[in-house]
Simulated assay, not measured.
Amino acid sequence: MDMLLRQLYQDQASKDHTCAIMVLKKDDSSFLSTDGFDAIILLISDEANELHSKHYEAMGKRVAFHTMSQDMMHHSLITGNQRRLIDWLVNGKIVYDRNEFMQDVKIRIDSFPPGDRSKKLTMQFAKLLRRFEEGKTLFNQGFVLDGFSNLFHALHHLARIAVIKDGFYPEVTVWEQVKKIEPEIHKLYQEALNSEEGLDKRIELLILALEVAIISKLELGTTHFLEVLRSIEGEASISDLLVIPEVQEYRIDLELVLNVLIEKGFVSIVKRETPAKAIFQTKYKINNFL
């Protein structure tokens, strides 16, 4: 198997654009997700926006060869949109590493720098708000199962916040992580799944628990965005905020985050006159006590 895999990646190791190559075999760990393949080869490239895959079969073994740019890899580490990637980077075997590039990535994952952590917390908090608001609305409109589905997703985002807060990347086995880190959230998860109460009652209890959690996690979950607001001189319109590069990963939910911060007194509304009589444009500024 090793000889077969080496034939696929050895030519790539000599190319200038190759930063690192990792190999993951299905038999190495029962926890690794190889998407049904017997092995995964992951090549990290310094070419911009490179992302492609090839599939191979030899000697009855199926292999997937993925190439990803280092910019996309770092973006995925921040956004968490490819959770299997964390497993691959942590558990994969390094077979080529130019200037210890991948060793530095592994150190970054282990240390989880505060800047990365702060942004991931706000992203997860924004998603928590979105799922919570949609779930509560659907439930109140009588769409019980759809409401429960969204609220259950909100609970997942709450779990990821707990894991990130403790300095870890949320993994595929996030509930095992939460069980050790914040047992109260794990208990809420178990009750939502296994309680003998009717579904309506479980949803009502879940809504109450999530409302409390949102308030308790508000400052932690919005730290990144609050830092962005502090960096702005004076007030800013929603248009000003939506184009800031630092908020792009959660811009789709930014208005929800902003409204909660206004409701809880962290941000103030500033009214500015417009040419239309009695119509004001609203702008926003962080309150001085923060």
Score class of each variant (00 low, 15 high):
residue 83 R to D: 10
residue 83 R to G: 01
residue 83 R to W: 11
residue 83 R to K: 14
residue 84 R to V: 05
residue 85 L to M: 07
residue 86 I to C: 02
residue 86 I to Y: 09
residue 86 I to H: 03
residue 86 I to D: 00
residue 86 I to E: 00
residue 87 D to T: 12
residue 88 W to R: 13
residue 88 W to K: 04
residue 88 W to Y: 12
residue 88 W to C: 02
residue 89 L to V: 01
residue 89 L to I: 07
residue 90 V to R: 14
residue 90 V to I: 14
residue 90 V to A: 11
residue 91 N to Q: 14
residue 91 N to M: 11
residue 91 N to W: 09
residue 91 N to Y: 06
residue 91 N to H: 14
residue 92 G to Y: 03
residue 92 G to D: 01
residue 93 K to C: 06
residue 93 K to I: 11
residue 94 I to Q: 02
residue 94 I to W: 03
residue 95 V to N: 03
residue 96 Y to N: 06
residue 96 Y to C: 02
residue 97 D to Q: 01
residue 97 D to S: 06
residue 97 D to N: 02
residue 98 R to H: 10
residue 98 R to Q: 10
residue 98 R to Y: 04
residue 98 R to C: 03
residue 98 R to L: 08
residue 99 N to C: 10
residue 99 N to I: 08
residue 100 E to S: 15
residue 101 F to N: 10
residue 101 F to I: 08
residue 101 F to K: 09
residue 102 M to E: 05
residue 102 M to N: 00
residue 102 M to L: 13
residue 103 Q to M: 09
residue 103 Q to I: 00
residue 103 Q to K: 13
residue 103 Q to F: 05
residue 104 D to M: 11
residue 104 D to W: 07
residue 105 V to S: 06
residue 105 V to R: 04
residue 105 V to C: 09
residue 105 V to G: 00
residue 105 V to D: 03
residue 105 V to F: 02
residue 106 K to M: 10
residue 106 K to C: 01
residue 106 K to T: 00
residue 107 I to N: 14
residue 107 I to F: 15
residue 107 I to S: 11
residue 107 I to T: 14
residue 107 I to Y: 11
residue 108 R to E: 11
residue 108 R to T: 12
residue 109 I to G: 12
residue 109 I to Y: 11
residue 110 D to R: 15
residue 110 D to N: 15
residue 110 D to K: 15
residue 110 D to G: 14
residue 110 D to E: 15
residue 112 F to N: 03
residue 112 F to C: 01
residue 112 F to T: 00
residue 113 P to R: 03
residue 113 P to V: 02
residue 113 P to M: 05
residue 114 P to A: 05
residue 114 P to Q: 02
residue 115 G to K: 12
residue 115 G to D: 09
residue 116 D to I: 02
residue 116 D to R: 08
